[in-house]
Every structure is written in C-alpha cells, then in structure tokens.
Simulated assay, not measured.
Amino acid sequence: MDNALMIGLSRQLTLRREMEITANNIANANTPGFHVESLLMRNEAAETASSQDGPRDLQYVDAWGMGRDFREGSLDFTGRTLDVALEGDGFFQIEGRDGEALYTRDGRFRLDSEGRLTVADGAPVLDDLGAPILIDAAQGEVMITEDGALVQNNAEVARLAVYRFEDRSLLEKSGNGRYAAGEAQADIAADAVIRQGYVEASNVQPILELTRMIETMRAYESVSRFLSQGEELSRKAIERLGRA
C-alpha cells in the first residue's frame, strides 16, 4: 500500500474516534457527575512500503488511550432531600448488577419500595461498611451531614461511603457515569464535603466541544482530499507508465 495512503488512513481512524468521543461529551452535557473525555494520541514509527529512496520510517497516528477531566462541575441546587453532591476529590460507592463495587459522583438518590437508598436505575447505594443503606420513611425526613451521616430523629442510621483514588487513570468506565476500581486502590475520602439538596453538573463546556467537533470535521475532510489527490496522482502515473 502507498505510504501516503497508509498515513492518511491512520489519521482518519483517529479522527473518527475523536468525533465519537466529542459527540458523547455533547450528549452528556446535562448528565450530572459526567466528566469530559478526550482522545489521547501518539506518533508510532513504522517501516515504509518498499521504495528505492526516501525515508526509511514513517510516523503514523495512533490512539492509545482515553483522558478524563475529573475537575468538579458546578453544584446545582435542587432542594430534594436525597440529592447530594461532593465537594472535593471522591466518589460515592454503589453496588453493580454482579455485586461488584462501582463508583460515581452522580448523587441523585431515591428510595425503592423496600426502603433501600438507590441510584436512578435501582442500584443500591452502599454505606461505609459496604452494605446497602436502608431507610424507614415513616421515621421522618432524612438529614445528610457534610461528613455523610444520614440522620433521622437526631439518630444516625447510616453513613455514605465516599472513596478517593490516588491514580484515577486506572479507573475503568462501566457506563452511566460509573467506574470500576480495576487495579486502582480505593481510600476513604476523609476531606470530601457532602452537600444535601444539590447535584453536581457535568463539567462539559458545550461551546468548546462544538468547536472541537467542527475542527475534527474539517480535519477529516482535509485528509479525505489528501487521499483523493494521492489516488489521482497514482492513477496518472500508472497511465503514463502504460503509454511509455
């Protein structure tokens, strides 16, 4: 395959992936606790196609990972008793479908029919001992303190688990704004502050993402023109050789 074509195709593949990530960011601009993502790329050297002259290696574009901006989004007041938001580094712990611990900053909690504190899709929220939190609604309104204690009738009935990770790059995305710890070590986030009646907004900046999308589209079109011109040059060269 022609060297120019190989380079152009490698760039198109990364641009398509970048477009998908940008579109996902825009789609989640209003998703509480969502962290903006970006594609991490690098140059990768490879040998050229067979040639008599020219450079002996080329630099291709390779997508090697996903970057996430874990900076806090703004805190939006909702006034709902079971809405909570985190100030500082940390994640709430919930139980996944297979019983594994997952981590999220989306604090839109609610009570299910059994009195368990859950997230929107019914996954249980875990306490500081790793057990589901049970609340008797008949005992009155729940107050949630800044350190995560759930209080009813002046008595603590449970305490939210809030964890932090020294190396957040090891977290594995599991969908719905949640992460599995993977090889990352979870520690108690002692300095995190919990705000009752608030939710953390996404940290996506839509204008920046739309600008990035336009730039990506233009870059893709530019590479497409480059490939078309390269194919045209090759066609003309073959025609001339055929007439020689």
Rank of each mutant, 00 (worst) to 15 (best):
Q93T: 15
L134K: 12
G140Q: 02
G115F: 11
L160N: 00
A49I: 03
F91H: 01
A192W: 07
T78S: 05
L82D: 04
D147N: 13
D127S: 12
L150W: 09
R164K: 11
I207Y: 01
T211D: 09
G140K: 03
L86G: 03
S202E: 05
E200D: 05
L75A: 00
D83H: 07
N176S: 15
R243C: 11
L170R: 13
D57T: 08
I135R: 05
A219Y: 07
R218I: 08
A45Y: 15
D98C: 06
E172V: 15
S234K: 06
I94N: 01
S50F: 15
A149S: 15
N154S: 15
V84Q: 05
S74F: 08
T22V: 05
F226W: 09
V157G: 04
L134G: 14
M217E: 13
E166P: 10
D187Q: 14
R116C: 04
Y198T: 07
M143V: 14
G140L: 02
T31A: 07
G140T: 01
D147Y: 11
V36H: 07
A149T: 15
G177T: 07
Y179S: 01
L227P: 11
T104M: 00
R17G: 03
L5Y: 01
G140H: 03
Y103K: 04
G230H: 06
A161F: 07
Q93Y: 11
V223A: 08
R168P: 14
N203G: 05
T118F: 12
G73V: 08
G182Q: 02
G148L: 01
D98S: 07
Q12P: 14
K173P: 15
A4I: 10
L160H: 02
R243M: 11
G65F: 10
L129E: 14
T31G: 04
R168A: 15
Q12H: 05
Q59T: 12
R11L: 00
G175Q: 09
D106L: 11
L75R: 00
M66P: 15
D121N: 14
R105F: 05
G122S: 03
A184C: 11
L241N: 06
D57L: 00
G90I: 00
E100T: 14
R16N: 10
S51L: 06
T145K: 01
A186G: 05
P206D: 02
A189C: 13
R110H: 15
E209K: 02
V125K: 04
L170D: 11
G177M: 04
V36C: 09
A123N: 07
